[in-house]
Nucleic acid binder design. Structure first.
Lengths: 207, 207
DNA sequence: GGAGAATACGAGCAAGTACTCGTATTTGCA
DNA sequence: TGCAAATACGAGTACTTGCTCGTATTCTCC
């Protein structure tokens, strides 16, 4: 255990190749899903031979893992942006919802491959765990917002409500990303209506 | 074209086998997903040899297709039950929601294999089309309810709202089926809260 | 400019898949 | 009871997939 195959000293060319492979993998995973995305196809999409692919990644799962890490890091940034405002109680509910949703929606729109990788049930179990910390952090932040704005909700119920909100939001993301233009704007409005309709009664409840 | 391989005259034993195979397939698909569900494993789960499997189904997709048809038929029954009440306007909103959701939730709880088959992106495209008529019918029924109860909502928005409601409901189903006992009951209550929070403002809008 | 390391290639291997086929057993029916 | 059809078997086949390996090319640094 603890054995490390020391990674070769990468040249600039190699670093570029790695990013190219990850870009190609994101595209192929998004189009085909995890299982159907063959390593040969990823190599072809990256414009290199299968052998070259394995110069940089030890196996298919390592590619997905690296891609997941890249996504998770960007997603983390979007989450931090969504919750960076210190004032959880001041803003009216609609504005609060705007602040939380807009950055995360923007991320999902800009990275269609993200959902394709993480939302698919055919990917290896280990991959989901890469997103776990992010998911847990998100849950905690939503709970914190609930605790501040809806103090009348007891703790056990609060955790459940946070999960429900996250689930709803994630379910609506495909509806948003798969539409375009005005229809997309309208869908974003609907997502916010849904969350507002769920949150408003919680905020108004007495302790 | 139009060629038909005439199906052999089934014996009672054969009819029984077909149902056993479908039961086994539902279990294996639910556990492993479409791709990872090997025909040999389905055969083993049904307690027969791979060769016997192909006595009744010409290929793996035909198994999934037959299973899908069986599910779709049962699902159709649940939908009809959910919407059979002629009175769309009389009942208060919470009762209306109970009537619509309970049968469909009950179906999903009783048939965990259903979601596993239809919600997975790794299944052949043709399969999804089996559920299409059911989905379209459901959309139409929800739209009809909206038209009756929320006449203030213009038509284009009504279609969008119906889609949103269905999407939300389907997203919450896993939260319900994956929990047990009191937690499950609580989750069902939450699903209904969400839909009520979304519907109530629509109903109260002026034409 | 040359030596060693990194990068690149692509035919091919081991393993796993859906599916077949020759044969044996069981069933329905005259 | 006997016979044709239906059912059952499971080792074997054709194919695909992730991945390797011997070899050729390009880069880095002295």
């Amino acid at each position: 255990m603890g054995e490390q195959v020391r990674a070769p000293r990468r040249q600039a060319r190699g670093e570029r190749r790695i990013q190219e492979i990850l870009d190609a993998a994101a595209k192929v995973f998004a189009e085909a899903g995890y299982e159907a995305a063959t390593t040969n196809r990823i190599a072809a999409a990256a414009g290199i031979s299968p052998g070259s692919l394995y110069q940089f990644f030890s196996n298919k799962e390592a590619i997905a893992q690296a891609l997941a890490d890249r996504f998770v890091e960007q997603m983390g940034r979007a989450h931090r942006e969504a919750f960076e405002s210190g004032d959880l109680v001041g803003p009216l509910l609609p504005e609060m919802i705007d602040r939380m949703l807009d950055p995360i929606l923007a991320f999902n729109i800009a990275n269609p491959g993200f959902k394709a990788l993480f939302a698919r049930p055919d990917m290896p179990a280990g991959l989901a765990s890469a997103a776990r910390p992010i998911q847990t952090a998100l849950l905690g932040r939503v709970e914190a917002v609930l605790a501040a704005r809806a103090p009348g909700v007891p703790e056990g119920e609060r955790a459940r409500s946070a999960r429900v909100m996250i689930q709803i939001f994630q379910a609506m993301v495909p509806l948003v990303t798969s539409s375009r233009g005005d229809e997309r704007e309208a869908m974003i409005t609907e997502v916010k209506k849904v969350l507002r309709g769920y949150l408003e009664p919680l905020e108004q409840r007495r302790a």
